[in-house]
Simulated scan of single mutants.
Amino acid sequence: MRRPLVMTIALLAILAGGAGWLRAERGAGDPADRPGASDLLGWREVDGVPWPQLPSVTPVDSSPDDLPASGTVLVNFWASTCGPCRDEMPMLQRLAGTGRVPVVGVSRDLDDDSARAALDEFGVSYPNFRDRDGHLAEALADVVPFNGVPSTVLVVDGRIRWAHIGDFDSYDELVRDVDARVAGGAPGR
């Protein structure tokens, strides 16, 4: 009688450990909650990973039918339930309005209505898409954490050159860091 109980407890411990490992490997939730998060947050150079063109990414609003494939584009991954994402929206809208670099949002929301409500609340007019089945996030899991929002990538001629994990502290930081990377430099974190 005691042996089956011990075996059951051991099996549950193994399953719980496996689930924790999988969560850490897939990048669940806020990147700041993960062990070693300070090593993950901020900018890092990416070795020209191709931007995937996937049919699962659909416009949330009156955006074009596809994400830009050429030129330089700042792509921000966000969710309406993410506080730091919501804090960034006005900064990204302001940056988009300057014409420095086109800004595109990709929502990780489960439905268009939640995403639209957040966009309306913050007066966001730059194009936004929704990764409705997570295929884009899965394709970019080596670049940004699977559910790590907010995350931002700088795409140059269809290739990801820079990734920023986490939120931007201020509009000035966002502009300084993006301008430097578009110009070929890399100051800041």
Results as ranks from 00 to 15, higher is better:
residue 118 A to Q: 10
residue 92 L to R: 03
residue 174 L to N: 06
residue 103 V to D: 01
residue 65 D to E: 14
residue 7 M to D: 08
residue 73 V to I: 07
residue 76 N to L: 00
residue 37 A to N: 09
residue 14 I to Q: 00
residue 136 L to S: 12
residue 63 S to M: 08
residue 92 L to E: 05
residue 134 G to Q: 09
residue 173 E to C: 04
residue 167 D to E: 15
residue 19 A to D: 08
residue 111 D to G: 02
residue 99 G to W: 04
residue 116 R to H: 01
residue 122 F to Q: 05
residue 39 D to K: 13
residue 150 P to M: 07
residue 33 D to C: 01
residue 179 D to R: 15
residue 106 V to N: 06
residue 81 T to I: 06
residue 134 G to P: 05
residue 175 V to Y: 03
residue 34 R to G: 14
residue 188 G to T: 08
residue 167 D to S: 15
residue 75 V to R: 02
residue 20 G to S: 10
residue 14 I to M: 12
residue 49 V to H: 10
residue 36 G to P: 07
residue 87 D to L: 09
residue 30 D to N: 15
residue 107 S to V: 08
residue 52 P to C: 14
residue 45 E to I: 10
residue 155 V to L: 05
residue 135 H to T: 13
residue 153 V to E: 04
residue 106 V to A: 10
residue 154 L to V: 11
residue 90 P to S: 02
residue 152 T to K: 06
residue 42 G to L: 01
residue 22 L to N: 04
residue 78 W to I: 07
residue 22 L to T: 13
residue 148 G to K: 02
residue 159 R to L: 07
residue 159 R to W: 07
residue 168 F to V: 05
residue 70 S to I: 06
residue 61 D to Q: 11
residue 117 A to P: 02
residue 82 C to P: 03
residue 64 P to H: 06
residue 15 L to W: 12
residue 122 F to M: 03
